[in-house]
Design a protein around this nucleic acid. Structure first.
Lengths: 267, 267
DNA sequence: TAGTGGTCTAGACCACTAG
DNA sequence: TAGTGGTCTAGACCACTAT
């Protein structure tokens, strides 16, 4: 195999200290090869040993450089098998049409309807159904005292079998008492349909989004590849009187989510 | 100083291999201390040497653990000074009211109006004003052939002096020809005001968001702390005929951005 | 079994910050 | 100047994958 040293890494031979760290220069060079498709998606990179020879550095430096590119989400490593240029996951689009009343009022839950529209399969696993003291974020939106008992429905949603969201839906107790929202299976149309059955007229939704890096446990729960951020999404649903009836606090895998909002220019 | 070994890291003494990597256990323990505010924001962590003694491991393992927490955005390191629990930056909220016609039609640019409303100062630096072949994403939204010449206005926006967004606004040539959108200073009310002056009636906006990790150059341009994701935001502005008149492709620092959308439940 | 990536050690030296 | 975090080396051993 052709294995030649790369002489493009700036002043590596001289002892001058005006260059960036070796690991960064190595990472830059590899990134360039990937971005120019010299190493296309799915391509197997040279082994650590080979890279060390190519760039004339130690294994530890190669590891650091590979770590940097993993953090950027550019490559993935597979123990015993190799290092590969990452195939970007196709993100699922979240448009506001997923909340269309015509769908859930006819028995199709939001999650399932949206997945079907995009040719995917949806699933969910209930993690917990219980009464808890309202966390500050939730209390604020319900305009109640933090710590007031509220009902929470914690679930993990799955797309094509892969967990993609940790979603906790909060309700005031008297809103859900006696409804199937307190049960594992909420029935046709999901929670929204149950609320309207009870006489609550759902009117508006407010969504707030932020991006951040996942914690260790979130990486595990969502099976996140390295270098994948998460989206914190807080969704508040209001009734016709402007009263919040559901607050959903969720964490989504960033590589599987894209959001789309379409709105008229406000006056 | 009280410096005792931590015995909470699972089976560290036994040679059994059923535990997670040392660096992960160390990171977990430190994360716990931070989350429980035993080490509050701004607190200086023990030095690498001290941590190595505390956890009974080598310096390299401590470095790895610290790297993990840096990636999570939980801590920051300062060479020569120490390691500190990160103070979360207060994110700027982006609500759709920032596009209100009443503001820019009276001479206040969107960027400035939004910053002022939140008690911050806004600024911008024009990086480039030129004609380019339309990138695929842009061409698609304009419904033109990719590669067709379009006008682009590349700028870096600043909030409180820190760069927070790389924004490239694209226009079809005959839309901007002869307007101040082709100049550095677009004048009062910004590009939106100039378009309406020309007889274009702006009607709707569509925003698409995705989160990802920044590339090396983006980290530099946006001065991103480690462990900070970016938001890819593509904004398309349509006129009353449903024709796209501006496509803005931008990259925002994730730790300074939060988005809020409020909409009626669709039928 | 050979070869891959992952974990871990011990230690040298440099760059930066603070007193 | 002392002490901090950052870079880098050399090498041992383990866990996993392919053949």
């Amino acid at each position: 195999m052709c294995m030649q040293t790369c002489s493009t890494l700036g002043s590596m031979t001289s002892g001058v200290t005006d260059a960036r760290p070796l690991q960064v220069r190595v990472a830059d060079d590899v990134r360039l090869k990937i971005e120019t498709c010299q190493w296309p998606p799915g391509h197997r990179l040279p082994t650590y040993d080979e890279l060390a020879v190519m760039y004339g550095c130690s294994l530890a430096v190669v590891r650091k450089a590979v770590d940097l590119l993993k953090q950027e989400g550019l490559i993935v490593t597979a123990q015993g098998s190799g290092t590969f240029v990452r195939q970007r996951a196709v993100a699922r689009r979240h448009g506001i049409e997923r909340y269309a009343r015509s769908r859930w009022s006819t028995g199709q839950a939001v999650l399932v309807a949206e997945a079907q529209a995009q040719g995917r399969t949806a699933g969910q696993r209930i993690r917990e159904l219980t009464e808890v003291p309202a966390p500050p974020v939730v209390a604020e939106r319900f305009s109640i005292e933090a710590g007031t008992p509220v009902w929470v429905r914690r679930r993990t949603t799955l797309i094509d079998g892969r967990p993609n969201q940790l979603a906790d839906s909060y309700y005031e107790l008297d809103v859900v008492r006696g409804t199937r929202i307190m049960e594992e299976d909420t029935g046709p149309g999901g929670g929204f349909a149950r609320l309207e059955e009870k006489g609550v007229r759902l009117d508006r939704i407010s969504e707030e989004l932020m991006a951040r890096m996942p914690s260790g446990p979130e990486v595990a729960a969502l099976q996140l590849p390295p270098g994948t951020p998460v989206i914190d999404l807080t969704r508040t649903t209001y009734d016709a009187d402007g009263k919040a009836v559901e607050v959903m606090v969720s964490v989504l895998a960033g590589d599987m989510a894209s959001f789309c909002y379409d709105f008229p220019i406000p006056d």
